[in-house]
Design a protein around this nucleic acid. Structure first.
Length: 307
DNA sequence: CGTTTTTGACCAGCGC
DNA sequence: GCGCTGGTCAAAAACG
């Protein structure tokens, strides 16, 4: 199936032209993913929902429709402005970065030196309290692969079993020096095909694979570069969300809450300097008018079919 | 050989 | 105080 056809099949039902991303996995196979939604369940959390069949499982006979049928949230996309501010966390994020650095640097020392002073413990407690206020940002992605490409390099530092769930939660940390951003990846209990990725913190550096100047809508750039002030909630698969809130309507170009997630294969070991297709698609989805700035002619082709 | 992942252990917070 | 849970550490293993 041609990309244009796939995109065309999507255009009738998808309320967000451009919300489907096609990408080449580098092995000649075509992958795609869907944006399912942007959601703020508790005014504390932005959630992006996407679907992303792994390239490895994407057989040639798999059609967009077969995947689209799995998208429960299509056509449920009324935007409700949310006035919560995102600016108040930026300074805290910086503080967190500093405390985190101290913590990271000090943890090894702490291990070697089990006896801790009260000051150390209080500092850690304070740090944890701050962490609760750190910007968080979550994506829901339909994918068979847990760890999704987002333009940054991550190192897994832990994995925990989730209560009442057969699926573990993985903990990742940005590999960049002095960058305190973390993310958690877990599967939705009710719908294991959905991966919930929660970002925490603010990147102190540009994406190694995406030029900083590339336009991304605030939720996306927030996720990639840090800056959102909202919190994630567990996936709502039992009752697909009917309300979607944005922190500010103006946060979205053209009022469209376009979002992205990622192709899900070997994200961290992709050759450097190669812009991630999904990132480009995200930018494209944000505003078709800006498409020419960020996407290839091929992507423009299918994007055009969808508008 | 450097980097990343795995995994058991540790710690804090919370509810009872 | 105790047990449970979430988050993190760090040594060892795996990987490229």
């Amino acid at each position: 199936m041609k990309m244009e056809e796939m995109a065309g099949a999507d255009s009738l039902r998808c309320p967000f032209p451009g919300a489907v991303e096609f990408f080449d996995d580098g092995k000649g196979r075509l992958g795609f993913m869907e944006l399912l939604g942007v959601q703020d369940f508790s005014s504390q959390f932005d959630m992006f929902q996407t679907t992303s069949p792994p390239s490895s499982s994407l057989a040639p006979n798999v059609t967009v429709d077969s995947v689209m049928e799995n998208s429960e949230i299509w056509n449920r996309w009324p935007a409700t402005p949310n006035s919560s501010s995102i600016s108040s966390t930026s300074s805290e994020a910086v503080n967190d970065e500093q405390t985190e650095q101290n913590q990271d640097g000090g943890d090894k020392q702490r291990r070697q030196e089990p006896v801790k002073s009260d000051k150390q413990w209080k500092a850690k407690k304070t740090n944890q309290k701050k962490k609760e206020q750190e910007p968080r940002f979550a994506f829901m992605t339909k994918s068979e692969v847990d760890h999704l490409e987002d333009g940054y390099r991550w190192r897994k530092y832990g994995q925990k079993a989730v209560k009442n769930s057969p699926y573990p939660r993985s903990y990742y940390r940005c590999t960049s020096v002095a960058c305190n951003v973390k993310k958690r990846v877990e599967r939705c209990l009710k719908d294991p095909s959905i991966v919930v990725t929660t970002y925490e913190g603010q990147h102190t550096h540009p994406s190694p694979v995406l030029p900083r100047s590339t336009f991304l809508p605030p939720p996306i750039s927030a996720a990639l570069y840090g800056g959102s002030a909202t919190f994630a909630t567990p996936c709502p698969t039992t009752t697909p969300p009917s309300l979607f809130h944005y922190q500010n309507a103006s946060d979205f170009v053209g009022g469209h809450p376009y979002a992205l997630s990622a192709p899900s294969f070997h994200q961290d070991r992709r050759p450097r300097g190669v812009p991630s297709a999904h990132l480009l698609a995200a930018a494209a989805a944000a505003d078709h008018g800006l498409l020419q700035d960020v996407v290839s002619s091929d992507m423009l082709s299918w994007q055009g079919e969808m508008v």
